[in-house]
Design a protein around this nucleic acid. Sequence first.
DNA 1: AATAATTTTTAGATTTACCTAAAAATATAA
DNA 2: TTATATTTTTAGGTAAATCTAAAAATTATT
Lengths: 220, 220
Amino acid sequence: MQSFTEENYLKIIYHLAEKTNNVQTNAIAEQMQTKPASVTDMIKKLADKGFVDYIKYQGVTLTDKGKNAAIDIVRKHRLWEVFLVDKLNFKWDEVHDVAEELEHIKSTALIERLDEFLGFPKSDPHGDPIPDKNGRFAKTQFTKLIDLKIADQGTITGVSQHSSAFLKHLEKLGLTLGKQIEISDVTDFDGSVEILIAGKQINISREVAKHILISSNGKH
Amino acid sequence: MQSFTEENYLKIIYHLAEKTNNVQTNAIAEQMQTKPASVTDMIKKLADKGFVDYIKYQGVTLTDKGKNAAIDIVRKHRLWEVFLVDKLNFKWDEVHDVAEELEHIKSTALIERLDEFLGFPKSDPHGDPIPDKNGRFAKTQFTKLIDLKIADQGTITGVSQHSSAFLKHLEKLGLTLGKQIEISDVTDFDGSVEILIAGKQINISREVAKHILISSNGKH
DNA sequence: AATAATTTTTAGATTTACCTAAAAATATAA
DNA sequence: TTATATTTTTAGGTAAATCTAAAAATTATT
């Protein structure tokens, strides 16, 4: 059984590994809000326990054991987020920090019953897939809104940024999960995007458009 | 903000203080499953932080600050137990360990919304009162079943032992919260008690009878 | 390829919560 | 009231996760 801290390292390595297979010490340090020297220490420990493969100066990769452990934490995190939003009426921008604590509660029975209580949800309030109890989940391959062309249509199905500020902003613009959108224009000047949503025309910055995920349903 | 461990100490001191005002080092050590020397260390720390009053060799008492912190943890523990039983279909003998972890999640919003979601319950699955968000709760002064006399009647409203073994035993005997009972006999030989419950006659040991709490509704 | 910049690791400390063993204080019994 | 037993504290140490500062390895630049 891993400690609270070990679990956080595993989770962060897992997420970083979604981008680059070999995860660097500095990247982990930044995410963990700690110093590279501390990361090196922990990496050695995780390697000793068989959670990661580690070659000095070459970064780490998760072993199968490490990946499973990480997916288990991600599963818990996302299920708790669904609970907070669906049952306790939290907003999607309020759940992250609390779920960050809840994900470390160790009880298989608890998480399986919670899953059932929530109706075996497939995704969390931010559109991220929830692994089932065997760690399996659909690899969601969504398009970033920024990559769409004029006249493309689609449904908002996720976000790639979970900060409260970003999510509140989307909320205010009405850009929530499930909404239909269509690209009406792309501004040459700053790359901002004009979109049509619920009959209204709105303008969103490149930065925002980068972090909205769309499941495309073809062209107009 | 207190650490996980500090919270456990406060909770245990609080419970021990229900019996004797001055809580002894050894008693805390036993409950915390640790050594008296470690307790002395922690007591000093809690005293420094203003959670307890401490005189060397004289044990500790909680300050108001300490008491409030402890009640807050008890509130969380009991609300989570209600959640586990009412919403996730846990049995009353399965909830203690998980609630022991959940009680340390730090979020006032979470606990207030959970309270509301559960319908502001007044007591937990073992009959223990749940403090409200201001720390207030009814002082339940129940009679132990063992103290009842022949022909006394009452309702099972609590237990003073939360071990899984004990609770499972009660379950099997049908001795659950809300059940009406009447004392039909007390055995001279071993002090065991004959009771009438749901039309049936059953015999329970002194040890069991000591830990069942009854709200008495007068004599027959 | 040599130099500079960056990244990573090592070495040695710190903090928290725990430990053992021994000393000191308090409570109990002869 | 002295001796014995119990309780509590002190002293000194350990393991986990962190830190700073300096050294080593890798990567990028001229």
